[in-house]
Simulated scan of single mutants.
Amino acid sequence: MTLVEHIYELRRRLAVALLAVAIGTALGFFWYTAYPFGLPSLGQILTEPYCALPPENRVQLGGGQECRLVAFGVFEQFTLRLKVAATAGVLMSSPIWFAQLWGFITPGLYAKEKRFAYTFVSLAVVLFTAGAVLAYFVVTQALQFLFTVGGDIQTTVLRGSDYFSLLIALLIIFGVSFELPLLVVMLNRVGIVSYAQLSSWRRGLIFGLFVFAALATPGQDPISMLALGVSLVLLLELSIQVARVHDKREARRRLEQGWDGLDPDQPSPLDDRLGSSTPAPAPAPRIEPLPPPSPATDRGSDGSADRWDAT
């Protein structure tokens, strides 16, 4: 495939991916307030952590019977709905645009690399989803702390844009952070880090993960910091144990291959003697001195008595 054909292929796949995202955004915009097939609306799903707070910890609107967020701008509700719909559209259309990306990359991969990539992508999706689900349940506890830290002195009137920004940021940060064990395992697989190195770095890595959790969580509340830090430490320990099993298997494999002192990927030096089609090289000729000449032998014009011959 020529360079121009590659560009045309990229343009076609990019157009399909953008069209899928646009359709997903339109569906998300409609789902924001609709209840398709008896399912809860997208807005209800996203505001459930906020509405799960006790009524005394949030501002009551509509006679105290409804749970609503507030907006202070004319276009704020429309902008917020469009932002949430676009995020939902990217997530809902992810199988399509990822398939386009995969279809553009795979022609340049070997069969072994394709199988490896399938495993990598599958685990990445599972870990990201697990992190996002954990963040969804942590939001309620985080808001409970943030809304009650002021006691009875003050209360919080939460804007919809602030709430959804906090929620989306937590979902993304938790989801991306949960890819840590996959990164560690991949580095171990390619031989960049070993189990011995990871084991010796364990204390420093744990400290660094808690520092990262404290800086990365947007709410700066101890609930989300602790949840993210403890989760990352557990995932790090899991990846270290996976590296330990992998290194043991590699050591056993090398030991089994090294019983005869030969590398199985290289031809044996005995092959030339045991029927190899390539003949063995002839031995190099040896230089040996001739016996001393008899007295009747002509010494030559230079009078030299030593003569050498190559046999």
Rank of each mutant, 00 (worst) to 15 (best):
R244N: 07
A296L: 13
T87W: 04
V211S: 01
P285F: 02
S301C: 01
L14F: 10
D162F: 04
Q241D: 15
V193H: 05
S199K: 15
A213R: 05
A243Y: 11
G150T: 14
F164I: 09
V230S: 03
V157P: 01
D260M: 06
A251Y: 06
G89A: 00
G219E: 11
R81I: 06
P281F: 00
G258Y: 10
P283G: 12
V139H: 03
R203D: 04
G38C: 04
D271V: 11
D302V: 04
V121I: 05
W259Q: 14
V138H: 02
L226T: 13
L255G: 02
G150M: 12
V185Q: 08
A34R: 12
P36K: 01
E113G: 05
F78C: 00
H6T: 15
R249I: 13
R13A: 05
F29H: 07
P49K: 15
N57A: 07
Y50P: 00
G204M: 04
R13Y: 14
F72M: 07
L3I: 10
Q220C: 01
R58Q: 09
G191P: 14
G219H: 10
A142S: 15
A196T: 13
F98A: 10
V138K: 00
I45R: 07
E76C: 10
T311Q: 04
R11I: 11
S301N: 03
F30K: 03
T297G: 03
L228H: 10
G43P: 02
P181M: 02
G151W: 08
A169V: 00
S294Q: 11
E66H: 01
S161L: 06
A17P: 12
I173P: 01
P54F: 03
T106A: 09
I287D: 06
L187I: 13
G73E: 15
